[in-house]
Design a protein around this nucleic acid. Structure first.
Lengths: 138, 138
DNA sequence: CCCTTATTGAAAATAATTTTCAATAAGGAT
DNA sequence: ATCCTTATTGAAAATTATTTTCAATAAGGG
């Protein structure tokens, strides 16, 4: 399993709570909160301590298996993510988040900003909002 | 004054606390927290209630005079913003945030994602991270 | 200068997140 | 399969962030 090997490579253990958090994230297409993960684990009869949810999210983020997503007004939620894919488009109706790849299209912009500001640019946060195909027929 | 007229147009009042919050935001080039604004107001001898700081930030955001910025790990801070400019590049050394305009450069990307995902895209969040010119000589 | 009403701020309620530490469980070694 | 080491968990408490409530205050038009 994906998670198993990533953890082992770092001398970390694949535990029940870590498995459950990852499963819940993967079975949910919208960004979700620690609270939501906690409640879902209860409903599934595999209750995890809320503290552990926080810790596990931190870990999964560090491993690049999960990413934080920012809402328009209220702040972040978490989604599982393919390594290397850094962007999401989020539906403002149902909340579903879909990954997309944006690196190439950004290079013109990045070069321009580099020239204009003389910053060294070493990271970016790009996120789109809109309405997904399903919610358009409603 | 800028703030004065924007407020009056909506039947809102220019109060001492609102002036102070705006001044603090404008005198700080990095994104700052409500707490920071609160403490700074104390230091300046123009103390504002923390609750009022929160309310004023909400208001200034609604008026598009202030914008929320997301850090890499820890979450948001607030910066004053020119109306219509929607992006910032943030220095990861000193925290300074500089505005830039990115709308045109994004249109290719947006069109591509539109075709790929069939989302209607009606908003985006773009933020760059890097090192500012000053911090490069250090 | 008065009056109306938007706005403030103190206190308390609520929610979010982090810290601490003893008990537990993963998984390599035997 | 069982033992042993040590990473990991979870309960409780501490800390921090944010929102709500409501009486007192102050902006600014009349």
């Amino acid at each position: 399993m994906e998670l198993q090997s990533v953890l082992n490579q770092k001398g970390l253990r694949l535990t029940q709570p870590r498995r459950v958090v990852m499963e819940i994230l993967e079975s949910t297409s919208a960004p979700i909160s620690p609270q939501f993960i906690y409640r879902t684990s209860q409903e599934r009869g595999e209750e995890i301590g809320l503290v552990t949810v926080y810790r596990t999210l931190d870990l999964l983020m560090a491993l690049d298996l999960v990413r934080r997503v920012h809402g328009q007004g209220g702040c972040h939620g978490y989604v599982s993510a393919s390594p290397g894919h850094y962007h999401h488009i989020v539906c403002r109706e149902c909340g579903k988040a879909v990954e997309f790849d944006g690196a190439q299209d950004l290079s013109d912009l990045l070069n321009r900003i580099k020239k204009q500001t003389h910053f060294i640019i070493d990271g970016h946060l790009l996120q789109l909002q809109g309405i997904c195909p399903e919610c358009q027929n409603g």
